[in-house]
Design a protein around this nucleic acid. Sequence first.
DNA 1: GATGAATGAGCATTCATTCAT
DNA 2: AATGAATGAATGCTCATTCAT
Lengths: 211, 211, 211, 211
Amino acid sequence: MKFEQNRAEERHGRILDAALKVFARKGYRDSSVDDIAGQSATSKGGVYFHFPGKQAIFLALMDRAASRLLDRVEAVIAQESAPVARAEAALHVVLRTFARHRALARLFLIEAYGAGREFHARLMEFHELFIGVIRRHLDDAVAAGVIEPVDTELAGRIWFGALNEIITYWLLTGRPGPLEDSYASLRPLLFRSVGADMPPPRGAAGAKGTP
Amino acid sequence: MKFEQNRAEERHGRILDAALKVFARKGYRDSSVDDIAGQSATSKGGVYFHFPGKQAIFLALMDRAASRLLDRVEAVIAQESAPVARAEAALHVVLRTFARHRALARLFLIEAYGAGREFHARLMEFHELFIGVIRRHLDDAVAAGVIEPVDTELAGRIWFGALNEIITYWLLTGRPGPLEDSYASLRPLLFRSVGADMPPPRGAAGAKGTP
Amino acid sequence: MKFEQNRAEERHGRILDAALKVFARKGYRDSSVDDIAGQSATSKGGVYFHFPGKQAIFLALMDRAASRLLDRVEAVIAQESAPVARAEAALHVVLRTFARHRALARLFLIEAYGAGREFHARLMEFHELFIGVIRRHLDDAVAAGVIEPVDTELAGRIWFGALNEIITYWLLTGRPGPLEDSYASLRPLLFRSVGADMPPPRGAAGAKGTP
Amino acid sequence: MKFEQNRAEERHGRILDAALKVFARKGYRDSSVDDIAGQSATSKGGVYFHFPGKQAIFLALMDRAASRLLDRVEAVIAQESAPVARAEAALHVVLRTFARHRALARLFLIEAYGAGREFHARLMEFHELFIGVIRRHLDDAVAAGVIEPVDTELAGRIWFGALNEIITYWLLTGRPGPLEDSYASLRPLLFRSVGADMPPPRGAAGAKGTP
DNA sequence: GATGAATGAGCATTCATTCAT
DNA sequence: AATGAATGAATGCTCATTCAT
């Protein structure tokens, strides 16, 4: 029975993997359940056994992806100690992950809009989740006196929106070639926006220059 | 003949107006040409007489809207003299216009993504157009020594992306109630991002110079 | 008024010419009245002024073509004196005319079938008309004792059907390259079918060799 | 699984049967897929599950019919020994089959022309197939010295074309009442066309040899 | 007479979903 | 659990025909 459960879970996951590929390639509306069934080496009936419908697949896919992404964010944040660095880290992981997984990026930045009314609320929840992370650490920074008091929710939203535009543009036009190159220029602008001193670049881990 | 031409143009415009309403209400994919025909008090055949197809309607709609919006932007910019104020003005008009015309906002911020691959390139062109306006005036500001040298293209993109996120969130959740309220908090963050001093708020222009 | 009448007739003919081109190129069902209007440098409304509808155009076209073809047949027959030669001449003109006017051939051999029930009766009338011509001269030949008594109606139909198949095959496959080449081989077979001696080839006009 | 396969094949065949009826009654262009679905007691979707489209149905129908007809031809030919009798048999089966199955006749002699460009090539292939059968046996007859050397391909085409015209005329006008009556008059004309002696009528085979 | 805008019925095709096996 | 056959509603688009100007 444990065995069967695993098999079911594996199938479940396989369908989501297939859906991600298909949705990213053809877009939500132009993907058919048959496409997903084909890509996941299952039958249409099989897909409907594991999911109640096409919408549910997309929703489950967003949930799984968002939760994995948040986990990664939390993991990276845990390695930073300075509040601003933590906020920054959150942003950077998202950029890096999307740069490495275009399909994922398409899902959140493009397809979720086109999938229809039903997904918008959920998408906004995800935005809030990520913005909330940024915001929390900016709040810490304010509390610690590292940055001036600002509307941290709005600041988080700005950071997030800026990132979105950059990644979306990259997704749809291919520019700039290596997405991560944007980050070096992006950093100072965002930091300045909340009146933070430029901390050493991420990864330099505070080891440099402190006597 | 002049008369007939006007009649044709009027119908053309009426169809676009109807399409805007319908697309904003039901989304591009869930809107049928019949819906548009009904809303514009025309027959389906009439719609197809004026437009080659559904996609063309959406495209024409985006073009018309973007061109009107750009005109408004240019008009407002012309009333400002300081470069940073001009860049800011561009942003502000967009915010105000979208706040007053939710349907328009939906079109550009939501539906254009869901309408399919064919529209993405065009949408990005519009982004570039607006970002280009901001950028040009930031360049002027740099040249005038008003702000420090920054990657103005990226700065423009950040401003634009931040605005997008704010408006999108408002569109989909209704928060904050009056969208324009965001502007007051947004301003200092964006200005700081490019290292600009806070100019007096827009519209306070007449107050300048009073001791 | 005579002038206007001529203008109208000219337009009428121009539309038929255009229709012939269009029908031959795209087939009756895939040709639109717009296509015909375009090809005849008229407006759709103009076409409908001269003809009550698409069917009527096709019918008028068939009538005009058949009548011209019959005229040509009669003219050529008048130049022959031997009854069998006359029957043969009828066949030969049709072959030659269709070989030189593919569009015409398409009209009668292909499109008339696809145009729908309404045209079938008329098409069969045309078949009968041509077969009647052949038959009449075969009857003369029988009466003159030149050929044995045969079912001349059937013989006419056979001659006509054979010709049809040959031309149709040529129309749709392009073989044989020069359609008229078939004629030399066709002649003896058809003549033998009615038990006629092989007369000298048409065009040799009895002048050759007879002392 | 064998069972399901049968069920699928049965449905497949049922749809073709329905299509034959519908196409023969209304013509290819005036038949809708809905008509076929209705006639086959299936849903439109069901039809599309078994066939990729309307054209494919027509094509499959032609293929099935032609293959069945060819089988019948071969079977009848096998019962004759004389080459000319075999060629004749081929012709006769076609006449008889079409006389008994008007729908089939309509399909090949009328609708295939009206169905559009796409079908013409296939139709000509069928013509060639049947003509090839006749031709082969005429070749045998020539080789056996039974008939004089003639262009057997052309002779086959003539026989076939003659038959076509006769059947087509019967289909569209109803004359002669019993189509098969034509055959008795047709035989001598065709035989003579290739210079063959009149063999005893088909079916009289058992009478052969009685002094 | 001529034009072209407008109409509206018709149709092939797609696809999410259901269900018998 | 899984399959694939079946359903039926939905929709973009075409086009013969009409008619106001």
